[in-house]
Computed example of a mutant assay.
Amino acid sequence: MYCSLETELRALELQTGYYSLRQIKAATNNFDNSNKIGEGGFGSVYKGVLSDGTVIAVKQLSAKSKQGNREFVNEIGMISALQHPNLVKLFGCCIEGNQLLLIYEYLENNCLARALFGRPEQRLNLDWPTRNKICLGIAKGLAYLHEESRLKIVHRDIKATNVLLDKDLNAKISDFGLAKLDEEENTHISTRIAGTIGYMAPEYAMRGYLTDKADVYSFGIVALEIVSGKSNTNYRPKEEFVYLLDWAYVLAEQGNLLELVDPILGSNYSKKEALRMLNLSLLCANPSPTLRPSMSSVVSMLEGKIPVQAPVVKRDGQMNVEDMRFRAIEVLSQDSQTRVSNISKDSHEQVSMDGPWIDSSVSLSSSKDETKDHSSSSRLLPDLYNVNLD
Rank of each mutant, 00 (worst) to 15 (best):
Y2L: 15
E6V: 10
E8V: 05
L9D: 00
A11L: 12
A11S: 15
I24H: 06
K25C: 07
K25P: 09
A26E: 13
T28A: 08
T28D: 06
T28F: 06
T28S: 08
N29V: 13
N30D: 13
N33C: 04
N35Y: 09
N35W: 10
K36T: 03
F42M: 02
V45T: 00
L50V: 02
S51C: 06
D52I: 01
K59E: 09
Q60I: 09
A63I: 14
K66S: 09
G68I: 07
N69Q: 15
F72E: 04
V73E: 02
N74L: 03
E75D: 09
I76K: 04
G77H: 08
M78E: 11
S80Y: 07
Q83K: 11
P85K: 03
N86V: 06
V88T: 02
V88R: 00
K89V: 10
L90S: 08
C94E: 02
L102M: 05
Y106I: 01
N110K: 06
C111Q: 00
L112E: 01
L116D: 03
G118V: 04
G118P: 10
R123G: 03
L124M: 01
W128A: 03
T130W: 12
C135R: 08
I138T: 05
A139L: 07
H146N: 08
E147I: 04
E148H: 04
R150V: 07
L151G: 12
K152I: 11
D157W: 03
I158G: 08
A160C: 04
N162G: 03
N162H: 00
N162E: 00
D166C: 08
L169I: 08
N170L: 08
A171C: 13
K172H: 12
I173D: 06
D175W: 01
L181R: 14
D182T: 11
D182C: 15
E184I: 15
E185Y: 15
H188M: 09
H188W: 06
I189L: 06
S190Q: 01
I193A: 03
G195D: 08
M200W: 02
P202W: 00
R207M: 06
R207C: 02
R207E: 03
G208W: 01
L210N: 02
V216L: 07
I221C: 05
A223V: 08
L224S: 10
I226D: 08
T233M: 04
P237I: 00
E239K: 03
Y243P: 10
V250R: 01
E253N: 15
E253K: 15
G255Q: 01
N256S: 15
E259Y: 08
S267W: 06
N268I: 00
S270T: 10
K272M: 10
L275Y: 02
L275V: 07
R276Q: 09
L278D: 04
N286R: 10
P287K: 05
S288K: 15
P289M: 14
S294D: 12
M301H: 14
E303A: 14
V308E: 03
V308P: 07
A310Y: 06
P311K: 04
V312E: 15
K314N: 12
N320Y: 09
N320E: 14
E322H: 06
D323E: 09
R325K: 11
I329P: 09
N342D: 10
Q350L: 10
V351W: 13
D354R: 05
S360Y: 12
S363Y: 11
S366K: 14
S367D: 02
E370S: 11
T371P: 11
S377N: 11
L380W: 13
L380F: 15
L384A: 02
Y385N: 07
V387H: 13
N388C: 14
N388P: 09
